[in-house]
Amino acid sequence: MPTIHWLGAGLSSAPGIRRLAAGNTPLILWNRTASHAAAVVAGLSSPPEIRTLDLDALAAVIRRGDVLVSMLPADMHLQIARLALDNGAHFVSSSYIAPEMLALHDEGQQRGLCLVNEVGLDPGIDHLLAHRLLHQYRPRHRPEHRLRFRSWCGGFPALPNDFRYKFSWSPVGVLRALRAPSRCLQNGRETVVQRPWLGLSRYDAELPAGRESFEAYANRDSLPFIAQYGFDPSWQVEQFVRGTLRLDGWSAAWQPLFEELQSLEGEAGETRLQEIGAELWHNYAYAEGEADRVVLCVELEALEGGQPVWHGGLCMDARGNEKGSAMGRLVSHTVSLAVDSVLAGELATGVSAAPSDPALIDAWFAALSELGDEVHPLPGAQLQT
């Protein structure tokens, strides 16, 4: 029987670890601090084996068909994927597919191994929502349709604070993302924004509990996902944006920080970035038991003659509870479902992202619903025939 090796027991790992530990597949939890890993699985009737993270020790016990789950910092994923390939094991991570990871695709296929990425929340569940909308729209497509696609996701305190944000992962990672340019389609044209706060817009979400207004900005490079989501090259796409939601008032609260980030340069700037990250973690980390909130909205709209003729929208609005933080549940439960699918032979070999198969998407969403996190139609979106 294969073994699941879960590497890293951080803030976004606990619910997925506990779910897999309740299954029938042997699970070993590897973490730098064994005592922290023990706290994550405390109270389980059959807790997994815990080992101190050491890659040499890990390599010595991997067997063909095992699954390595990397919830370590993103710069370690390639090393773990390489370790998996060299030992005949599969690999799963929630992070974006880096070019160096994609370069392993052919080798993974040749060895019959899965290298699965982008199966967390964002990226992950957002991909599943996009694929579901594309499946629903495709039979209704007409050549004259002009398409607008929007995918927004954000995590923030369930009870807003003055800073309009708290950190569930490294503040330095958040700061680096704010210093990176974004690329998307707006009004049929490629749009590049050098700093996210320079391209802020508003997003009015018609959530199940009512309408709510957020600040929103594009992040990373949205354009490769046009093909990944299955948009036909002949389709007329006038808007395609993947981005981040923030609570109303976020940009005003962060303005002094934006100004300092803009000025950082060179080695001194990197040092200051690390200092700012430490300060933010000290001042704005979640308190023990404090509830967070995650809002994810994905919409696809078709227009003809300037008028909407089809509009599909799906959303999640989750809050932290006794089962874990909203962020931790949505990231790690989805990772754990990917592990199940790897072991069941449901995913393609080589490098892949969240699945597009309708039946598998339905199964994953059903499992998430059973775990307490449901996908809802956006009340403002109607699937028109």
Rank of each mutant, 00 (worst) to 15 (best):
Q262F: 13
E290Y: 13
G243M: 10
H282D: 11
L300T: 13
Y286S: 08
V237C: 05
L273V: 11
E304L: 15
L245N: 04
L247Y: 01
L257Q: 12
W281N: 04
Y229D: 00
F258L: 07
Y229K: 00
Y229G: 00
W281S: 06
Y284R: 12
E304Y: 08
E288D: 13
S251L: 11
V237L: 04
G269E: 03
D248H: 06
L264S: 11
G306P: 09
G243Q: 03
E288Y: 07
W254A: 11
Q262T: 12
E275L: 07
V298E: 04
G277S: 02
T244V: 09
E275C: 05
A285I: 00
A285Q: 15
D232M: 02
G230D: 07
T271E: 15
I226M: 12
I276N: 03
V298M: 08
G243C: 09
S251A: 15
A291M: 02
P256E: 00
Q255E: 15
L300S: 07
D292E: 06
T244K: 05
F240M: 10
G230C: 04
G313S: 02
E238G: 02
G313V: 06
T271F: 11
I226T: 06
N283Q: 10
V298R: 04
P256W: 04
C297P: 02
G243I: 00
I276L: 05
Y286Q: 07
P233N: 08
E267Y: 06
E301W: 06
R242V: 15
V241E: 05
L261G: 06
S263Y: 00
G306C: 08
Q274A: 15
R246A: 14
S263H: 01
L303R: 09
C297M: 06
Q262W: 06
A268G: 08
F240W: 11
Q228Y: 11
T271K: 15
R293M: 05
E267L: 12
L264Q: 03
